[in-house]
Design a protein around this nucleic acid. Sequence first.
DNA 1: ATAGTTATTGCAAAAAGTTGCAATAAGGAT
DNA 2: ATCCTTATTGCAACTTTTTGCAATAACTAT
Lengths: 140, 140
Amino acid sequence: MTCSLDYAPQLRARGFRMTSQRMAILHVLHHAGTHLSPTEVYKQAKRDFPRLTEPTVYRTLEFLARNGLAHPSHSSSGHLTYQIAGEDHHHVVCRVCGSEIEIEHALLENLYRKLESTSGYRRINSHVTFFGVCPKCQLS
Amino acid sequence: MTCSLDYAPQLRARGFRMTSQRMAILHVLHHAGTHLSPTEVYKQAKRDFPRLTEPTVYRTLEFLARNGLAHPSHSSSGHLTYQIAGEDHHHVVCRVCGSEIEIEHALLENLYRKLESTSGYRRINSHVTFFGVCPKCQLS
DNA sequence: ATAGTTATTGCAAAAAGTTGCAATAAGGAT
DNA sequence: ATCCTTATTGCAACTTTTTGCAATAACTAT
């Protein structure tokens, strides 16, 4: 769980605290390397820290996202999932069968800069899920 | 509710059925002109058709989205909302305060075509929500 | 019109996610 | 080391969303 300690200074600098719960959750996200649902995070993190509760997981994931340590994204069913910050890719999900593929962030980079200049919003970096129809389902 | 009848042939052609529940739900979406949560759709459609139930609303909205009659999108809290097909815009939501603005679809048109050619997926037309930091929250 | 097929719905129960508030504990100050 | 402040958590109750299955009703064909 040492890896999670690296985040402590970032949090403290902003007036937040590093807790065992947050460490357990960061640890799980850090080692998953992919998107996880709150429930999956809860199950895994509970192994490290058994008195963890579900509301804490939901609140912590939201907290981590708000502070840029985790990226929220949407599963094919539209539910929120999270992954540790730093893994940059997006998804295209098939509207019909639910299959999904990853696309590189580089493809969106231009768009993000354009959005920032037209909207006035900054640091747009969300993970985005597009819906379409996959090659297999185009046949029917 | 006559407006919803226009959709019946589309459904029948694909082997689906037009029902009072679907009509009531389409009617609500059609006249809302904006995104609605499943619960909002349920409350409004129930006025037209009192024996409507919640599971039916969830399943119907998913069904309409899968068949291109409604577009799903994500509220600032990450929940799914739906709007009638045809209104084309996207959102940028502030990660910090939750405020949101609309952006025109035209800005994404190029990206969508590029995604289609690199991914093999077709008819990518989802409504997308980006997260960033709004001008007001950039100050703090 | 009627009957048959099966897509669709309602019901009931379960699972997932949210909220308010009192209790706890992290980190700064003494 | 101890105290104090208040960010964070746990608990319990609640709301939202999902699922399985039996009952219903839309459409097709007769």
